[in-house]
């Protein structure tokens, strides 16, 4: 049993409960123990890149530090949380001034300066379990299902901080799909932004961008799109005019591992 400190984030508690539930169930099947810290706060959804403020970064530092205190790596599922926490961790270990300010403010018993290793759930599958081992545990392979992975913008960029995969030619989701028995569909728009970020300001963007992504995936013959991001999920379902299912990657993982009644929550 390997222990991880698990950060679900705000949306996994509300609109994306299935993303969360499946992640937990699958972790248990795969021998991963997820420990959720009692007092986590919302990460804010977007990382403030500005070097002159720390307030927006503190909740991420707190959870990073609680993982450090527990002696665990930190794991995230939601793309946005992943992005915010990894960028925070990167900046705090590369920007001495920011690190100093944050620590002076938080007054932790021991300074936090980027010690925690952060995994996205997919990285855990790739680097801790191994896709080959994952494949061995698959009970109901998604045979013949052509799945288009949608990375979006948050999962891979900026590459320096996220350091997860090649941001222009990623393979982690494709290899994940292969491991659960599906056929990955490679399409060029898989790492482009769906535009949902500005939905309150400019809905037009969200509609146009998501339509382009769905079209690109469908054109290449996809039966299904998978994502790790609740906001992308919402946008692709609501605004793209997409007529193929859009699902969380943890849902298809759960199905492949033989979990019953996946996806009935929404």
């Amino acid at each position: 049993m390997k222990n991880f400190t698990y950060y679900p984030g705000c949306t996994l508690r509300t609109k994306a409960k299935e993303l969360d539930r499946c992640a937990r169930v699958c972790a248990e099947i795969l021998g991963i123990n997820l420990e959720e810290p009692a007092d986590w706060q919302c990460c804010g959804g977007a990382y403030t890149t500005a070097k002159d403020e720390i307030a927006t970064k503190l909740s991420a530092v707190r959870v990073l530090n609680s993982a450090k205190e527990a002696g665990n790596p930190l794991i995230t599922v939601c793309s946005a949380c992943h992005n915010v926490i990894k960028q925070t961790n990167y900046d705090i270990s590369h920007d001495d001034e920011m690190c100093g300010k944050v620590n002076r403010y938080l007054g932790l018993s021991e300074n936090y300066s980027g010690e925690t290793i952060v995994y996205h759930y997919l990285e855990m599958l790739r680097d801790v379990i191994g896709f080959e081992n994952l494949a061995k545990q698959v009970k109901k392979p998604l045979k013949g299902v052509k799945i288009a992975p949608y990375y979006g913008c948050l999962l891979l960029r900026p590459k320096k901080a996220l350091a997860m995969d090649d941001p222009e030619n990623p393979s982690i989701m494709e290899n994940f799909i292969k491991a659960i028995g599906g056929t990955p569909v490679v399409y060029a728009q898989r790492n482009e932004c769906c535009g949902a970020y500005t939905i309150f300001e400019d809905k037009n963007q969200a509609v146009e961008r998501s339509a382009k992504i769905a079209e690109s995936a469908r054109e290449m013959g996809a039966d299904m799109i998978i994502t790790a991001c609740p906001l992308c999920m919402y946008n692709l379902k609501k605004n793209s005019g997409c007529d193929i299912p859009v699902r969380y990657f943890t849902e298809v993982l759960a199905e492949a591992l033989g979990v019953e009644e996946v996806g009935n929550e929404q």
Partner: peptide, 9 residues
């Protein structure tokens, strides 16, 4: 390494 130009696709 420059797959925004889709060479490998």
């Amino acid at each position: 390494k420059f797959d925004e130009y889709a060479y490998s696709q």
